[in-house]
């Protein structure tokens, strides 16, 4: 476990923020996660890495969960504080031989967009489409990071995104070509439903293609 100094906190919405930390000699494979907590604290949680493999810093995208312990505490951290980082962990990763050859569909809910952001920032020339499921438009975290035509915002609580409804509804209405490589990240209800829909559309999903947050 290493101690990393916080460089900056970027608040994206009243509840969601990005912690930028020094990277030191930390290396990872895009899509992996770390566990994070205040130095010395036993309360630690998993967070996908938001920044790219080549960035000179380490970033995570966190939503403060109502009644949550760690996401609330971390929101109060300040530049200069130290956080304990352990990892990297996880098998949610791209296959080297597919990156420049295949067409990708990324499906994320909420902060589940974090490892997808890292995928795309690491491999900016990928051929991808990104479905982002949120409640309201303000949760389109750093939308400018993605090429406009490739990012589809699905809003479930208000008609302010590119599609009014859940990502699963979008998938039903817009079938996916069966040679697409799909990656799913976020809450397990979405993943369970989307998985089912995609399988019926002829997509073959292996174990490395889903990352459940809660």
């Amino acid at each position: 476990m290493r101690s990393h100094k916080v460089i900056e906190i970027r608040n994206l919405t009243p509840s969601t923020y990005i912690i930028k930390m020094e990277k030191k000699d930390f290396t990872f494979k895009t899509g992996q996660y770390i566990t994070l907590g205040f130095s010395g604290s036993i309360d630690r949680r998993e967070y996908s890495i938001y920044s790219s493999e080549q960035d000179k810093f380490l970033e995570v995208l966190i939503k403060e969960v109502e009644d949550g312990l760690v996401s609330k505490k971390l929101k109060r951290c300040k530049p200069g504080d130290y956080l304990d980082v352990d990892g990297p962990f996880g098998h949610f990763s791209l296959k080297e031989d597919e990156i420049s050859k295949k067409k990708f569909l990324f499906i994320a809910t909420g902060t589940g967009i974090s490892p997808i952001h890292s995928f795309i920032a690491t491999h900016p020339n990928m051929d991808y489409q990104l479905l982002h499921g949120v409640r309201k438009e303000e949760e389109a975290y750093e939308r400018e990071s993605y090429q406009n035509n490739n990012y589809i915002l699905c809003t479930s609580r208000e008609n302010s995104g590119d599609f009014y409804g859940r990502v699963t509804e979008y998938l039903k209405q817009n079938p996916v070509p069966s040679d697409t490589v799909c990656y799913l990240c976020g809450n397990c209800h979405m993943i369970y439903e989307a998985y089912d829909i995609l399988e019926k559309q002829g997509i073959n999903l292996g174990p490395i293609h889903t990352e459940v947050y809660f």
Binding site: H91, C188, I191, Y192, Y195, E199, G206, P207, V212
Partner: peptide, 16 residues
Amino acid sequence: SDPILLKMRRMYNIKR
């Protein structure tokens, strides 16, 4: 059950 396997963060589903 697949929903439970997902909650357990197991690396496979029933089909696999």
